[in-house]
């Protein structure tokens, strides 16, 4: 899997490179519009991460170029401007996803996986970890082939963890991504504990090979149950 990172900020580019390389991707970088033009014209990538605010040009024009070359590279726009117009324009021009800055690498990697999965064909809309399989379209969960009934929020939480295996997930970050902005003045995360407790019980009862582990004081981690 070959990725191209088009990002002008050195530090961000470096950590994106590092994080994605460590996940097993082949990563190339382009710090400027000019470099990016060269790379796009000369090579093919599975996924291009495109910052649309470049010092020497608008990333949206790069996107037009990619589409004009009739390539089937997936494109994820990363932008500091969380503006609806940019998002709509980007998606109209054929971008596959739009990720506003600031984002966590785990989020980025989850988006890449999701985009690549979509690229592999609409048939394969599932995610799996160990013996757990999530069908993203029908929102059904099976463990070892047996259906497990989950509530809406429990499904969202499980999906979030499965997209970020082996990362320590802060409860506040988890709560925010599942419950949205609603939690930003909450000082008690009892509602997260309650949901996770139920989810863990359901997974354990179904005999799942992976489960959510509490990392005391910091949050949770999705790992193999044997570990």
């Amino acid at each position: 899997m070959k990725l191209l990172i088009i990002e002008d900020d050195n530090s961000l580019r470096e950590i994106m490179h590092r994080a994605l390389t460590s996940e097993g991707y082949v990563v190339e970088v382009a710090p400027t519009y000019f470099d990016a033009c060269d790379k796009i014209a000369g090579y093919s990538y599975d996924c291009i991460l495109l910052d649309i605010m470049l010092p020497d040009g608008n990333g949206l024009r790069l996107l037009e170029q990619i589409k004009a070359l009739d390539k089937d590279d997936r494109v994820i726009i990363i932008s500091a401007r969380d503006s609806l117009d940019d998002k709509i324009e980007g998606l109209d021009l054929g971008a596959d996803d739009y990720l506003p800055k600031p984002f966590y690498m785990a989020e980025l990697s989850a988006r890449i996986k999701s985009v690549m999965r979509r690229g592999a064909g609409a048939v394969n809309r599932t995610m799996s970890a160990g013996n757990i399989v999530l069908d993203l379209q029908s929102r059904l969960v099976t463990v070892n082939g047996n259906a497990v009934t989950l509530l809406k929020k429990e499904f969202d939480i499980l999906l979030y963890f499965m997209q970020r295996p082996n990362h320590i997930i802060d409860k506040a970050v988890l709560a925010e991504s599942v419950w949205g902005d609603h939690i930003d003045m909450v000082d008690n995360f009892q509602f997260v504990y309650a949901q996770i407790k139920n989810l863990r019980k359901r997974l354990a009862d179904a005999g799942a090979s992976q489960n959510i582990k509490a990392v005391y004081g910091f949050g949770y981690k999705f790992t193999d149950t044997e570990v």
Binding site: D9, L12, I15, M16, S22, A80, K101, I168
Partner: peptide, 20 residues
């Protein structure tokens, strides 16, 4: 807007340290 990129960098560097 200008804060977005440094914030992403900062958050991710910390994340990286905590992970690896």
């Amino acid at each position: 807007h200008e804060l977005q990129t440094p914030l992403a960098v900062l958050g991710n560097r910390i994340e990286w340290m905590m992970d690896s």
